[in-house]
Structure formats: structure tokens, C-alpha cells
């Protein structure tokens, strides 16, 4: 493994920035290009890179499969809950305008929360798929 010392150090340095960039894309999607889906993919890419360089076992310790699997569901449920909250507040499903004191703020909150839901589900699915493929060994 010593042969890959440079690779390992560079990866270690890079990963925080990849994850940070993921968060930036997640929360800056309202203003520039980007949003939940792209953020989820980038965030997952950080974990996948970690798994590729330090081994699948290490990645599993960072992101245990059972928790990641639950996060898949959590992301979608956050999205659905935002929609249902709109219904409970007297609007239609996914009507964000009623979520805050005025429609504009309600829209901002709604968009922010559902994008977060998308990001969580996408990141969790990508990591799960990575684990699923990496956990299989070649058969002849």
C-alpha cells in the first residue's frame, strides 16, 4: 500500500473540499447552477473516492450500509413531508406559499427543504449502488 502514499495523501486532502463543494452546490442552487441532485452526486463522489483509495471496508465504516439505506428513505420522506405540510396548512400538495407568513418566503423555505430531501436520497442511493457493485466479486 505504500506505493500509493501520494494518492492517499492527495485524496485525504481533496475529500473535505469535495464534500464542502457538495454542500455549496446544495445550498447555492437557488442562485447559480446546481441543486439537490448535483449536490447529492458530488457528495457521494467524495465517499466513493474514499472507498476506492482506502478500501471498501473503510468506506463502510464511514458510511454504514444500514444507515445509508435508511437515508434513502429519509430524503424522500422529507420531500413528501414538505408537500403534506402544505396540505395541512390549507394549501394543495407541495404548495410552499402557505408555509411561511408570506408566499415569497414560503417558496424559499419549501424549495430549500425539498432540495435537501433530493440531495439526501441521491447521495444515499449513489453510495448504496457503489457498495452493491463493489461488494460483489468476479465470477468465471
Amino acid at each position: 500500500m505504500n506505493h500509493y502514499a501520494i494518492l492517499r495523501i492527495v485524496t485525504k486532502l481533496l475529500i473535505p473540499y469535495i464534500l464542502l463543494f457538495g454542500l455549496y452546490v446544495q445550498f447555492h442552487g437557488d442562485f447559480g447552477p446546481g441543486g439537490g441532485f448535483q449536490a447529492g452526486v458530488i457528495f457521494a463522489a467524495g465517499i466513493i473516492l474514499y472507498g476506492l483509495v482506502f478500501g471498501i471496508g473503510a468506506a463502510r465504516r464511514v458510511a454504514p450500509a444500514s444507515i445509508v439505506e435508511r437515508l434513502i428513505a429519509v430524503g424522500l420522506l422529507i420531500y413528501a413531508a414538505t408537500g403534506i405540510a402544505g396540505m395541512l396548512k390549507g394549501g394543495n400538495f407541495l404548495e410552499y406559499g402557505v408555509l411561511a407568513h408570506d408566499a415569497g418566503h414560503g417558496q424559499h423555505w419549501g424549495i430549500l427543504i425539498v432540495e435537501l430531501g433530493v440531495g439526501i436520497t441521491v447521495a444515499a442511493v449513489m453510495i448504496t449502488i457503489f457498495f452493491a457493485f463493489a461488494g460483489r466479486e468476479r465470477t468465471e
Binding site: I129, A132, F133, R136, T139, E140
Partner: peptide, 13 residues
């Protein structure tokens, strides 16, 4: 589809 391909390869070689 790719997951299916992996399984098909395991079953059929």
C-alpha cells in the same frame, strides 16, 4: 440494467 448484467453474468457466465 448494469446490476442485472452482473447477475446475468453470474448465472450464465
Amino acid at each position: 440494467a448494469l446490476a442485472l448484467i452482473v447477475r446475468i453474468h453470474e448465472a450464465y457466465g
